[in-house]
Amino acid sequence: MSPMSATECLLQMCDERFELEDYQSGVPRWCTGCGDNAILAAVQRLCRDEGLRPEKTVFVSGIGCSSRFPHYMRTYGFHGIHGRALPIAEGVKMARPDLTVFVNTGDGDCCSIGAAHWIHAIRYNMNLTVFLHDNQIYGLTKKQASPTSPVGTRTNTTPRGSYLEALNPLTVTLGVQNVSFVAQAVDWAPELLYDIVKAAYHHKGLSFVRIVQRCPEWMPKLLDPWLHDPGRVQLLHHRNGLLPGAGSVKVYTNQLEHDPSDINRAREIASNTQVVPVGILYRNPEVPCYEDLIGSDKLRTADVTRAGLNAELDKHTVWPRESHA
């Protein structure tokens, strides 16, 4: 990395320093004990530690418990429509590449109604950081099965238990062309959650982080076997991947060295349902970003915009027929 020039140092010398409170907005209306709170705390901590300017940061969400996220961040936010968080975020990034764009989406929002957008967002690989808050249930609408609900889950829509195997968001993402960053975290390991969120933020391209999240209201016992047995959390570590803190290493002794450049091994690890792999499964910084591929250096002056609009409108203009002599 080349050192900063004196001018760059000068420009940063007067940068404002932010505290956690500068990113907090209102009291979250999530249930007490909800894993969304842990994600919120980790992301606010990331914003503070990275010095992200609130007016240059955007959180985009769809619909669901997780999608209330932008309301609790004192930054720009866009609480979008169901399943459409990703295309909105892509539009924001395309128009304003200078902004840092995060996406908060749930298992229903992303993996059901928004599944098509999810797959193509991965393929487009725009520079976004996507958090999939996966509590394996529709919580906001009071317990309906989501695509990631385990088979046999009794809900309002599946009173005899769900019939289908749960969709695995990690293996799906790892199967899409142009995937560039896939990680998994759990809300009950805050130190690891923060480390993974930070690594995702620093990746250039679409960083997809699935966060396995408790829903104490509708699925209170679902994750207990993993929560109470640290051995079922498989800590992925590697010199080129996650370097977990000593506290995490001490608690999570089921550890696996995994090189995040190995996509086939990543797919194998992601398919293991006996343990929850936590860490960076795959990272490839060489995948090009869509905005870089099609971005134009041409300045959008008022004249350029006007000419472009006129050209587009002229395509559909019905011109009066010239009178015949």
């Binding site: 979250p28 007490t32 004990g33 909800c34 894993g35 709170n37 842990a38 919120l40 705390a41 809300d187 009950w188 390991a189 805050p190 130190e191 104490p216 506290g247 608690v251």
Partner: peptide
């Protein structure tokens, strides 16, 4: 503290 997941149970 480092293992707290900020769930608001105790503060509530």
């Amino acid at each position: 503290t480092v293992r707290c997941s900020t769930c608001n149970e105790c503060t509530t």
